[in-house]
Design a protein around this nucleic acid. Structure first.
Length: 313
DNA sequence: CGGCAGGTGCGGA
DNA sequence: TCCGCACCTGCC
C-alpha cells in the first residue's frame, strides 16, 4: 500500500521528545510495544490495515498464556482509549482548518490525535524522569528502572522491556532508587507509586471526572507539577483544550511559530500567547500541537537554525 | 572546573 | 498568588 494512503503512520512517539526506551520499537509499518494490563505482560504489534478513508489498525497480542475473549475485548477497548481512536476530528478541521498556520500542519498530519500508549502510571513515571534534565539522561534513567524492576519479554523476534506494578517501586524505597542514579526524583517515583499501589488514585475513575477534578488529583501527587499535568491532560486524558502552562523553552519556540519573531530579540510573554491561542477556542491545545509537530517534522528535511539551538539531547 | 538542564516543593514576601 | 531557592547527576 502506498504510504501516502495511510492515515496512521503508527510511529507513536512524538517527533520531538522521543523517549524511545526499552518498551517499544518502530519500523516502517510496524510498531512493537509491551503492555502490562490486568496483571498480564503482553507483547503487542501494531500494523496499519486500512486506508485514509477506511482507517484500520491491526493489533497482534503475544502472551505467555491463553487469554479469554472478555480479556481481549477489554484490551481492545483500552487500546481504543489510549490511542484515542474514537475521536472525531472533523469538527476541529472544519472550525480551524483554514487558519494559515494550521492548514499545512493538518494536511501533513491528517488524522493525528492526542494519545499515549502508556497507562497513566507509566506516563507519570516518564514525566518524572523527564524533569529538569536532558533527554539522554531521562532515557538512561528509564532504562535503568526497566532493568531493575521491569520484565524482559521476547516476542515477534524482539526483546522488549515491560513495565512493573506500582507496588514494586513503592517497596523498593528511596535509597535503592537513588542508587540507580535517578537523583532526587527517587522520592517522587516512590510516592507516586505508593499512591497507585494504595489505590488513592485510579486511572479509570479519573477518566470519568471533570477536567478540574483531574487536574487537582494529578497536582496532589508528589513530584507532579503544572508541566507534567499539561502533558498528561492532553496525551493521557485527551483534554485537548487544556492549555495553562507554557515552559520557557516552549515559549521560545512558540515565539517563532505563532508570532514569527526571534525570541532572542523579542520573547513573547506567556499571557499574550494564551490570549492568542483563545482564537482556537476549545481546540487550542490541539491546534498548538499540530503546529508544534509540524515544525519538528520540517526539521527532518531542512535546517532550522533557531530551533537547533534549543535542542538538548 | 562551574554552570545548567523539556520541573517541582517549599518557605517567605 | 508570586517569587527565589535547593536539588541528583552528567555533560558542555
Amino acid at each position: 500500500m502506498p504510504s501516502g494512503d495511510k492515515i496512521l503512520e503508527l510511529d507513536g512517539a512524538n517527533m520531538d521528545i522521543d523517549l524511545t526506551s526499552g518498551d517499544t520499537e518502530w519500523e516502517p509499518g510496524r510498531r512493537r510495544q509491551t503492555m502490562l494490563w490486568k496483571g498480564e505482560r503482553l507483547g503487542l504489534t501494531y500494523e496499519n490495515a486500512g486506508t485514509k478513508s477506511r482507517p484500520k489498525v491491526r493489533v497482534g497480542v503475544f502472551s505467555g498464556k491463553k487469554l479469554p475473549p472478555d480479556f481481549i475485548d477489554e484490551l481492545r477497548k483500552e487500546i481504543v482509549w489510549r490511542f484515542n481512536l474514537d475521536m472525531d476530528l472533523s469538527a476541529f478541521y472544519k472550525d480551524v482548518g483554514n487558519d494559515p498556520i494550521l492548514k499545512p500542519a493538518i494536511r501533513r498530519f491528517y488524522g493525528l490525535r492526542p494519545m499515549s500508549p502508556n497507562s497513566l502510571y507509566e506516563y507519570l513515571i516518564i514525566d518524572i524522569v523527564l524533569q529538569n534534565t536532558v533527554v539522554r539522561r531521562s532515557v538512561s534513567m528509564l532504562q535503568s528502572l526497566f532493568e531493575h524492576y521491569g520484565t524482559l519479554l521476547e516476542y515477534d523476534n524482539k526483546r522488549l522491556w515491560c513495565y512493573w506494578e506500582p507496588a514494586v517501586l513503592a517497596e523498593a524505597g528511596e535509597q535503592e532508587l537513588r542508587d540507580l542514579k535517578v537523583g532526587y526524583r527517587a522520592k517522587s517515583l516512590v510516592r507516586v507509586s505508593e499512591s497507585f499501589a494504595e489505590g488513592r488514585i485510579n486511572e479509570f475513575d479519573l477518566r470519568q471526572k471533570s477536567a478540574k477534578e483531574q487536574e487537582e488529583a494529578l497536582l496532589s501527587l508528589y513530584g507532579i507539577g503544572p508541566a507534567s499535568v499539561g502533558y498528561i491532560m492532553f496525551d493521557a486524558l485527551h483534554r485537548f483544550d487544556y492549555m495553562k502552562n507554557i515552559s520557557p523553552w516552549e515559549q521560545k519556540i512558540y515565539t517563532h511559530i505563532f508570532f514569527k519573531m526571534d525570541h532572542e530579540k523579542h520573547l513573547v510573554p506567556v499571557s499574550k500567547m494564551l490570549k492568542r491561542f483563545e482564537r482556537w477556542g476549545r481546540w487550542k491545545g490541539l491546534a498548538v500541537n499540530y503546529a508544534w509537530e509540524n515544525i519538528w517534522w520540517k526539521r527532518r528535511n531542512e535546517r532550522i537554525p533557531w530551533l537547533e539551538k534549543e535542542i538538548r539531547l
